[in-house]
């Protein structure tokens, strides 16, 4: 069976979360891979959240916010618009394909578009394959043990 990407989505409460809700009520078909975390504004999304999600096994992270100018908090989405590219650069430098982190503006009325975004993102991640950071995640306890083991040799 093909790889099912495990996606995390941060949706802003006023536009994208309402948009997702509209997609649901409008029976829009879109893959279920995206697991959603509601935040009050896309500006709340801290780059650490994205890294933590990836670290915990997410294959891709989608951040959605209101269109610029529509933000319920006036400037929240502008801040997100500045933070995401930097996060993607950071992720890229860590050896993770930046495309695994995506920012989309979805307004409350764009239920259909939300579906398309999720589908498109899922397919894109599917093509990138699993990230599976755990394998090479740093296990502090193992590292200690190994160190102790090596220490013996070096001591």
């Amino acid at each position: 069976m093909s790889f099912e990407p495990n996606l995390v989505g941060f949706l802003c409460n006023w536009c994208s979360y309402t948009g997702a809700d509209l997609a649901g009520t409008a029976r829009v078909k879109y893959p279920p891979n995206l697991k959603v975390i509601r935040v009050m504004c896309s500006g709340r999304v801290d780059p650490n959240f994205i890294l933590d999600a990836l670290a915990r096994g997410a294959d891709g992270v989608l951040v959605c916010g209101c269109h610029p100018g529509d933000c319920h908090y006036v400037e929240g989405n502008y801040k997100c618009q500045r933070r995401l590219p930097i996060t993607r650069m950071l992720v890229g430098e860590m050896g993770i394909d930046p495309r695994r982190v995506r920012l989309e503006w979805v307004s409350a009325s764009e239920g259909v578009r939300f579906g398309e975004v999720v589908s498109e993102f899922t397919e894109e991640i599917r093509s990138l394959g699993p990230l599976a950071l755990q394998e090479w995640a740093f296990d502090p306890a193992a590292a200690d043990a190994q160190l102790a083991h090596q220490g013996g040799e070096h001591a």
Partner: peptide, 10 residues
């Protein structure tokens, strides 16, 4: 404060 959280992230 409108509790948008932007400051917390920043």
């Amino acid at each position: 404060c409108k509790a948008c959280g932007t400051c917390a992230a920043g």
